[in-house]
Design a protein around this nucleic acid. Structure first.
Lengths: 116, 116
DNA sequence: AAAGATACATAAGTTTCTTATGTATATAAG
DNA sequence: CTTATATACATAAGAAACTTATGTATCTTT
């Protein structure tokens, strides 16, 4: 069986928002750094979300009205919690369902072996 | 159960080369247009590879030594067949295996429901 | 005191795709 | 017969999403 340390970056492209929305639908509220660590932990380091990818993505989801934010002071440091809006909960389910459907299609496509 | 007509374009990003390499590992040789039609057919129009994406991708795979080409004249028209080189056969298996591994990881990641 | 972890942010550059355009032949429809 | 659609290639401009690099600042461990 095949095992790799980390996936090639093209593979992960397009899945970032789905992952973030799913985590937020399971955890009510999370902050950016927490999301990066959670994904690293849950995937055994196979998927590592970089901050340069995550923060702009969170900002755009907020601008779309999918996420709302709450800023909390931790000592002298600021922590920005994100949570799904009502609209965001719908978007989250749609994205996860779409990805599940996509995985079925890809599984079918990559399993076929006609001529050879 | 969720069903969609076509996947959002971000989702498909990064999977094009994997799909092409898998088709070529099952069919020995195919030409560009044939690949677009085959994918459309096999996925019930859910994945539609555009020629603007496919041809540059085929060219770069050829430049990397993963594909080799053979030009055939069909009447007055030209058809360019692509097939996997020896190196390409290895790459094809790797890409498909990597994607299968990635799907397992994503399935796990998107199924988790702890706190809620 | 320094190194590493926590925590945010942005900007330049790259890759990969979409959309548009171009060329040309073959076939089906009106 | 001529127009639309399908076949078959190709490239180029622009958009989107990421990587890599950089910046700021605090907290904790060594």
């Amino acid at each position: 069986m095949y095992l790799c340390l980390m996936y090639s970056s093209e593979l992960i492209k397009g899945t970032l928002k789905t992952i973030v929305l799913k985590l937020l639908s399971d955890n009510q509220k999370m902050y950016g750094y927490e999301i990066t660590q959670k994904v690293k932990e849950l995937t055994g380091d196979k998927i590592q979300i970089t901050e340069g990818a995550l923060y702009p993505s969170l900002h755009s989801l907020e601008a779309e009205g999918i996420l709302s934010t709450e800023t909390v002071n931790i000592g002298k440091r600021v922590r920005k919690y994100y949570s799904l809006t009502k609209k965001g909960k719908g978007t989250s389910h749609e994205k996860v369902s779409e990805f599940a459907d996509f995985m079925n299609t890809m599984k079918f496509l990559l399993d076929i072996r006609p001529q050879v």
